[in-house]
Design a protein around this nucleic acid. Structure first.
Lengths: 221, 221
DNA sequence: CCAATAGTGTCTTTCAGACACTATATA
DNA sequence: TATATAGTGTCTGAAAGACACTATTGG
């Protein structure tokens, strides 16, 4: 049985949640959009394989990438070659555009909303994997500080709020959000600097704090 | 590469969380305790393979078993034969004792607390899989009605509380618990019957309700 | 000046936890 | 009777959501 890893790579750009898709350069599904991925090597750990494929097929530098296992898909009919795939979820800051490589003929960012609405656009069972990945990301933003993985090293609380709004596809009251984030221990720490890059009154800049879990959590509306 | 499924099968008996372990009847690790599991057949879906192994190796009837995928373990050194394993989590009501079969020389219930304290008791990386499975079960009891999977068809709120106490290894105030469960929409529905099997005043019997998610959740202390 | 964003304070509602109190069974 | 469990009510504190208000920039 063949064993592969696939990747749901998400970023937030211009207040929209985007996913990295490739155009397949080989059969099956040659020419169709798909998630990046590839076969696991015999002496390789699963997470290492996912990191390698991310680098090979998309050219994304692996710095500041959050990567975790998502789920495994193994229905006998999901791939004519009988491949089981361990899907992974990657969250990256708004980055330079990806460059295709490996078995990928092209690599680009695609709006998640458009793909969710069109189950036939992606090859294999990748629409299902995408749905599961997006739901995982949405859930993790509630109880973990992972939203910071979408931000640059130093960010304002307004920028962090825009990440939540893009991933959850909701509007959030800026004043309550500010109070919650700054009162949740270890979520963010001040850098001491400020910025006016969002316009208006200068905003304090923050880095991700030491907390792994948010107490209390940030709940979706 | 070989592909297997392993099972973390949990139940609650006498206020303790128990896990189903087998004694391996074949190499490697012949004679040592391990989680039940086995190889996936070429034409088989992963969840089907997990169900089949549960039935073959432990003889547990599959009725009223909650089964879900847990995570996939694929480190190159985890098994000398280079096996990746898709672990599954099963929650079953306090059931008859299991009967060994397949590659299992014996099958029994073991206290989870004892196994967690002794990382060397289980073969392969099964201690790690057990830890992940127990943590998943503990987390799911917070926001899903899955605690009912440990109860018989009709149960009292006191029995449901004992499930939470056993899985979380904590004490819960019976009065606050009662109020929370009965006010969470769709968690449980009255059967109309009562029982005195717990002693004291007769308690109403409930069945699991239609809710898939608990609003508000039952939070751990 | 105005418009925009940042940040604080206040009010109301909801819910968790502590615990007094009542209800109904068995010994 | 005592004792056990079931179930309700009440209080307090934490936190969420709505939103008034002030602060500080750029145009």
């Amino acid at each position: 049985m063949l064993v592969a890893v696939d990747l749901v790579v998400l970023t937030v750009r211009n207040d929209r949640l985007l996913i990295l898709t490739i155009d397949r350069g080989v059969d099956p599904f040659r020419g169709q959009a798909a998630l990046p991925g590839g076969f696991v090597r015999p002496d390789e750990d699963l997470l290492d394989a996912a990191e390698r494929e991310l680098s090979e097929e998309t050219g994304l530098s692996e710095l500041r990438v959050h990567l975790e296992q998502l789920a495994t898909y193994g229905h006998p009919d999901r791939d004519p070659r009988r491949v089981i795939s361990i899907a992974h979820l990657a969250l990256v800051p708004d980055a330079a555009d990806p460059t295709a490589g490996g078995d990928a003929a092209a690599a680009r960012w695609t709006a998640v909303g458009d793909l969710l609405d069109d189950p036939g656009r992606l090859a294999f069972d990748h629409h299902r994997i995408l749905s599961d990945g997006v739901e995982r990301a949405r859930a993790k933003l509630e109880y973990s500080p992972l939203a910071t993985a979408f931000c640059s090293e130093a960010f304002t609380i307004g920028e962090l709020r825009q990440v939540y709004e893009a991933v959850w596809d909701t509007e959030i009251d800026p004043r309550n959000f500010h109070r919650k984030v700054s009162k949740t221990p270890g979520f963010v720490v001040e850098t001491g600097a400020t910025t006016t890059r969002q316009g208006g009154r200068p905003a304090k800049l923050y880095r991700r704090g030491p907390a792994e879990l948010l107490h209390p959590p940030m709940l979706r509306p």
